[in-house]
Computed example of a mutant assay.
Amino acid sequence: MSFTLTTWNINSVRLRIELVAKFLKAQRPDVLCLQETKCPDDAFPAKRFKRLGYEHIALNGQKGYHGVAVISKIPFLATDIRTFCDNIDSRHISVSLQTGAADPPLLLHNFYVPAGGDIPDPEANPKFKHKLSFLDEMRACAPLHPSGDARHILVGDLNVAPHEHDVWSHKQLLKVVSHTPVECDKLLAVQAAGNWVDVARERIPLSEKIYTWWSYRAADWTIGDRGRRLDHIWVSEALRARVTDFKILRDARSWERPSDHVPVTVTMEL
């Protein structure tokens, strides 16, 4: 079967539900993973998603901040929520899906990694210290170490642009949170510990620029194209050869009242 999954930091699902509906009507992914839903579970617009054909919804939300959700056409076999750094701050949810009778389940992790504030010094900035600790815990987390024929996917706003051409200016952003060497090293260590395949960089050479986020601070995001690749899709080795397509919907950044992130989509033959 062809399986399509999208990850999108929506920056308030209730504020941007019309944009999400527009995207789902046009693209129809099997699964949509959202971050920064900024919505308690009992206020999530589940009925709207169900009317769009997405009957299965897994939530880990809170009022006004953070929050992750998985919206799916495919039923869930199980759901799970993990906490990191002893904080109950709605940054992870996982679901398992049965995509074929003879296949092992597909396990999907959806993350919203802490942004880390503005000062790249863990002693001066508790938010940056939290981010580094969160990445360390991800690296050490046994469920994030798929092996053998395990069919795992890890997606989300990981809030790190780890490679030189994942940012508009490597030199100018080396001391800017999201592209400091310590963050890049820690995110790449998470990837290496789980033997994850970074789908974007598997399909697009490291020499090419890729962005998924453009700051609201720019009056016109297209001028200078000063983006960063903060949103990621990783797959386990067992799924590497199954990937058939990868897309970043840059145009979504120009929609009315957009998120500062855009949808990122992978297609696989399972």
Rank of each mutant, 00 (worst) to 15 (best):
residue 179 H to C: 12
residue 107 L to W: 04
residue 114 P to E: 10
residue 122 P to V: 13
residue 130 H to D: 12
residue 148 G to P: 02
residue 103 D to W: 05
residue 83 T to I: 09
residue 91 R to G: 04
residue 138 M to G: 05
residue 111 F to K: 04
residue 183 E to P: 06
residue 101 A to G: 12
residue 127 K to R: 15
residue 184 C to V: 07
residue 164 E to C: 09
residue 133 S to W: 07
residue 111 F to Y: 09
residue 85 C to R: 07
residue 114 P to Q: 12
residue 186 K to W: 03
residue 152 H to I: 01
residue 82 R to N: 03
residue 176 V to W: 00
residue 179 H to M: 10
residue 127 K to N: 12
residue 160 V to C: 09
residue 151 R to W: 01
residue 100 G to R: 15
residue 153 I to F: 00
residue 140 A to K: 12
residue 173 L to T: 09
residue 126 P to G: 12
residue 105 P to Q: 07
residue 166 D to S: 14
residue 99 T to S: 07
residue 150 A to G: 03
residue 145 H to N: 06
residue 166 D to M: 08
residue 113 V to K: 05
residue 139 R to L: 10
residue 82 R to L: 06
residue 103 D to R: 08
residue 100 G to T: 10
residue 182 V to I: 15
residue 168 W to F: 15
residue 153 I to W: 00
residue 97 L to D: 00
residue 107 L to E: 02
residue 101 A to K: 14
residue 164 E to P: 04
residue 155 V to A: 13
residue 185 D to L: 15
residue 148 G to M: 00
residue 90 S to C: 08
residue 115 A to C: 15
residue 128 F to H: 15
residue 154 L to F: 03
residue 95 V to R: 01
residue 108 L to K: 02
residue 191 Q to N: 10
residue 160 V to L: 09
residue 126 P to L: 13
residue 142 A to W: 00
residue 183 E to A: 11
residue 155 V to H: 05
residue 119 I to V: 14
residue 163 H to S: 09
residue 115 A to S: 15
residue 120 P to D: 13
residue 178 S to Y: 05
residue 134 F to L: 07
residue 172 Q to A: 15
residue 178 S to E: 03
residue 101 A to N: 13
residue 158 L to C: 09
residue 192 A to C: 13
residue 155 V to K: 03
residue 128 F to L: 10
residue 121 D to W: 12
residue 145 H to R: 09
residue 119 I to C: 15
residue 169 S to D: 13
residue 165 H to G: 08
residue 180 T to G: 13
residue 187 L to P: 00
residue 165 H to T: 13
residue 99 T to F: 04
residue 157 D to K: 03
residue 110 N to R: 01
residue 98 Q to V: 08
residue 117 G to R: 06
residue 137 E to A: 14
residue 167 V to K: 03
residue 147 S to V: 01
residue 146 P to C: 04
residue 93 I to C: 03
residue 174 L to A: 15
residue 163 H to C: 10
residue 137 E to L: 08
residue 104 P to C: 06
residue 154 L to D: 00
residue 114 P to V: 11
residue 192 A to E: 14
residue 147 S to M: 05
residue 190 V to G: 06
residue 177 V to Q: 09
residue 166 D to F: 05
residue 144 L to H: 02
residue 159 N to I: 04
residue 137 E to T: 08
residue 163 H to Y: 14
residue 173 L to G: 00
